[in-house]
């Protein structure tokens, strides 16, 4: 179990990223690929949140002593990244809906064959 003790949560986030990438490379279902890419995005967010992690640090708001505050930069940036991720996924799903109505399939391979020449 030495390997498991060596790993920390950031490594799990990287693992999650590559699981998402695997999904995007292998899944033929469009919804599943959109979900895979969403997982990649969120894994990157989790990784970033843990970038300057300190044990026992408090939230960076008034009330916490300055020396015990967690690094506020990743939190401020990641709230932006999460919002962006949500809107891009929403946009992907919306375009997928139009595609599904038009071509009647959720499979990348069948979809390519049904495109107009």
């Amino acid at each position: 179990m030495a390997l498991l003790e060596y790993l920390d949560i950031s490594d799990l986030a990287v693992g999650l990223f590559f699981i998402g990438l695997y999904g995007a490379m292998t899944q033929r279902n469009i919804i599943k690929t959109i979900m895979s890419v969403g997982i990649m995005d969120l894994a990157a967010v989790v990784f970033f949140m843990l970038a300057n992690y300190q044990d026992g640090a408090g939230p960076p708001i008034s009330g916490t002593p300055v020396d015990r505050m967690a690094d506020p930069v990743p939190q401020a940036l990641m709230i932006t990244a999460i919002v962006i991720g949500v809107s891009v996924i929403a946009m992907c799903l919306a375009t997928f809906m139009r595609v599904a109505y038009r071509y009647g399939t959720a499979d990348w391979n069948i979809l390519i064959r049904r495109l107009e020449k």
Binding site: S10, V14, F17, G20, L21, A24, I30, T33, I34, V37, M40, D41, A43, A44, V45, F47, F48, A51, N52, V73, P74, A81, V88, I89, M91, C92, T95, F96, R98, V99, R102, Y103, L111, L115
Partner: peptide, 27 residues
């Protein structure tokens, strides 16, 4: 609409790479 969807998904994957890269750099 198909073109736009493919464009979005390809770029979104690339941006996930970009974001994780920024995370590494920041760490």
């Amino acid at each position: 609409v198909y073109d736009a969807m493919l464009y979005l998904m390809m770029n979104f994957i690339a941006m996930a790479f970009f974001l994780l890269g920024i995370g590494y750099l920041y760490r």
